[in-house]
Simulated assay, not measured.
Amino acid sequence: MSPVDLACAEPAFLDLTMTGLDAIPGPGEERLATDFLRSPGGGAITAVGAARLGLSSALVSPLGDDAVGILLRSLLADDGVRWTGRLVDRSPVTVIMPSHGDRAMATFDPGEGVTAQELASVEPRAVVLSIPRLPLAPAGARVYVSIGDVDARALAGGELPPELGTARALLVNEREARLLTGLTDTEAAATALAAISPLAIVTLGADGALAAGPDGVVRVPGVAVEAVDTTGAGDLFAAAYVWADHWGAGLTERLRWAVLYASLSVRVATAVAGAVTLRALLEEGAEHGLASPVRQPSAAIKEDQ
């Protein structure tokens, strides 16, 4: 089995998205959707995004030996994502209800997790994994750390693990940065996180992103788009950031590419539907004054399917 450029070690969910809602239902309310979509979610979003950007990627996560797991493995294979893991009884599922740029989600997660041996088996050059899974990172791999809302709440006010000091970058959103540090100012929160991780990156939604590290704070603006569904934008930000770092782009360029990729994704329902190909991203990047970091475009750029 050949090494992969990126392994994603977070649980993969089947996202069930209700589109066309005029509002997110409140307690006791029922609202009608205009469509119902199924797509890979969770860690699979980053894996699919990386694959569409020309990296070899793998999802290393247990999946159920059930109808949901069969569908997820098929969808991943369609995008060229390698699945490695073990079969368990049931697969995670998330129901997503986007409306007017916001969303509500309900998730079932049976709680199965990847092992260090499973992650090491794909010989990844880089890994994306959450703070609780940091000890599983294989030696020698570039480590990009994320955290979800549940783990951010659990770690709020506590000490962050020293293993963060070995990470290439910590990627969080504004809410997560504030929860982890107890600070209300986003830039101050990023700076505090950079005292633990070599580089702390905070996504700012429509306002772009900022990074705090040895060279101080770097901020890049957002890209104006009409948001339909913001689900998975952070996961695709991570995919594009790793892609740009893989090709040796500077910090500001990495942030700009990642912001652009995430912004493009929210124009349609579901993250995977919004994850554009490398060719499409490079064309959009050229319109925003970004030069391709890919050294061999003829070999790396795949035609849109």
Rank of each mutant, 00 (worst) to 15 (best):
P221L: 10
G208C: 12
A194K: 04
A209V: 04
L164Y: 02
A258F: 09
I131Q: 08
V228P: 02
V218D: 07
V220K: 07
R178G: 15
D149C: 00
R168H: 13
T186K: 05
D185S: 13
P135F: 13
E187F: 02
F237H: 12
R168V: 08
I201R: 12
G157C: 04
E174V: 14
E176Q: 15
G216E: 09
L193N: 11
V145M: 04
G248T: 06
A139V: 14
L210I: 08
R168E: 15
A141T: 12
A141I: 04
G157V: 08
Y144P: 01
A188P: 00
V259R: 06
G140K: 11
G148C: 03
V225F: 14
V202Q: 13
A177K: 02
T252N: 05
V143W: 07
R133M: 13
N173Y: 04
P162Y: 00
T203H: 06
L164E: 03
A211W: 04
V143R: 10
I131W: 07
A139F: 01
G213W: 08
F237W: 11
A258T: 07
A169K: 12
A169L: 08
G248P: 07
L251T: 12
V172L: 01
T203Y: 06
P138I: 12
E226T: 15
A189M: 02
T191I: 14
A249S: 14
T203E: 07
G157D: 04
I196F: 00
I147N: 02
E253D: 15
L170W: 12
Y144S: 00
V220A: 02
W247K: 00
R133N: 14
D185K: 03
L251H: 10
A167T: 10
A137K: 09
L134F: 09
I131C: 06
A154L: 11
G234A: 13
D215C: 00
A200W: 05
G234W: 12
G182T: 06
F237V: 08
R256S: 14
D207K: 15
V172I: 05
V150M: 11
L179A: 04
G182A: 11
G216K: 10
R175A: 12
D215A: 15
A190R: 06
V242H: 06
L180R: 03
W247L: 12
P132A: 11
T186C: 11
A190M: 09
R142G: 14
D235K: 02
A239Q: 03
R254P: 02
G205W: 11
V150S: 13
P221W: 11
R219H: 13
A212N: 09
T252H: 09
A227N: 02
I201N: 10
H246C: 00
L183P: 10
A169I: 04
D229E: 07
E159A: 15
L255Q: 05
L164P: 05
A167F: 08
T231V: 13
